[in-house]
Simulated scan of single mutants.
Amino acid sequence: MNKNGQLLRTALSSYSFLENEVWEEFEHFFIEKSIAKNEMIWENGEVCKHLVFIVKGAVRSFSMAHGNELTNNFYFDSDLFYDDYSFISQKPCFNNYQTLEDTDLLLIPRSALYLMFNKYKSFERLGRIVVECRYIELYESMTRKSNQSAGENYRYLMEHAKKVIQRVPLKMVASYLNITPEHLSRIRKSYASPRAKIA
């Protein structure tokens, strides 16, 4: 097993156990790929045909509305992601996926995943648990963003998602919080002051 495959196995082991023989068959399908900063992995209108594991780097997903970019999510080292709708339906993506840094990836073809699901019960169980956990994370993120103020959401990033603050341009952080860069600047100043209220 190469180093990148071991990183993926470590990430997946937190969800469920896979027998060595199942893993050895699975890793034959891995495709290693390096993508330069600001390049697209998928664009609106393309079909998502791979599960992606980030070995090293950063990716954001965003959509377009009235000529503006609306950032939906960020992915970093050891994260797994795909475009949920497109991957499952095999219809075109509505979102775009762009690297924020030079990024190294492991790609796993959708066809290989479904082959493994059908062949091994333990692999099917792993896939189900990963999807369930991903749904919970996305639901909690959407609920938090819609029910909390921008200041509260920024505080959450500071406390639980520091990679976003440290590695993402501020204008994209503002887009993710659905506020202007100027509003984000005010929040950051407020956060730096222990006596100020974050709005």
Rank of each mutant, 00 (worst) to 15 (best):
A161P: 10
F76K: 00
T143M: 14
N95G: 15
T103A: 01
Y114V: 12
K3S: 15
S13M: 06
A174G: 01
L100D: 03
S16A: 14
S193K: 12
L107S: 01
I41P: 01
I88L: 14
V168I: 03
S89M: 08
M116I: 09
F53L: 03
I31C: 13
T99F: 08
R125L: 13
M116T: 01
Q166Y: 00
K162C: 06
E25S: 13
A196S: 15
F26E: 00
L157F: 12
A112P: 01
Y139F: 12
R186D: 00
S86G: 02
F26R: 02
R128H: 13
S190V: 09
E140T: 06
L100C: 04
S61M: 03
A150Y: 02
Y82E: 06
E152N: 06
L7D: 14
Y97F: 11
Q98T: 04
N95D: 14
L7C: 11
E32Y: 12
K163M: 15
Y156K: 15
T103P: 03
P169V: 02
Y75K: 01
E46Q: 15
F81G: 00
A11Q: 09
K145S: 05
E132A: 09
F17Y: 14
L51C: 08
T10A: 13
R134K: 11
D104Q: 07
C93H: 06
A196E: 15
N147Q: 11
G45Q: 09
H183C: 13
F76Y: 08
F74D: 02
N20P: 12
N178F: 05
Q166V: 05
G127E: 03
E159R: 13
L177P: 01
N95I: 10
A11M: 13
L51M: 10
Y97W: 05
I88C: 11
R155I: 01
Y139T: 13
Y15Q: 06
S16E: 10
L170H: 05
L70H: 14
L157D: 02
H160E: 07
Q98R: 07
Y176W: 06
F76D: 00
Y97M: 02
C93A: 01
I35G: 00
R128P: 06
K49M: 09
S149W: 00
K3D: 12
H50D: 06
E101I: 10
I108F: 08
V130K: 04
S61H: 06
Y176D: 00
S141F: 13
L8R: 04
M116W: 00
H183A: 13
S146T: 12
L113V: 09
I165Y: 03
F53K: 03
N4G: 07
S89Q: 07
K197I: 11
S78F: 10
H66F: 14
A112K: 08
I198H: 10
S34D: 13
F17W: 10
R110T: 15
S193G: 06
Q98S: 10
K171Y: 09
E43Y: 07
E39C: 12
N118W: 09
Q166D: 11
N68Q: 12
I35F: 05
A199Y: 14
Y176C: 01
E152R: 10
F81R: 04
L177F: 01
N44T: 08
D102W: 01
D84S: 15
F94N: 12
I129D: 09
S16I: 08
T10E: 06
P169A: 03
L126A: 08
C93K: 00
L105A: 04
M172K: 12
F74C: 02
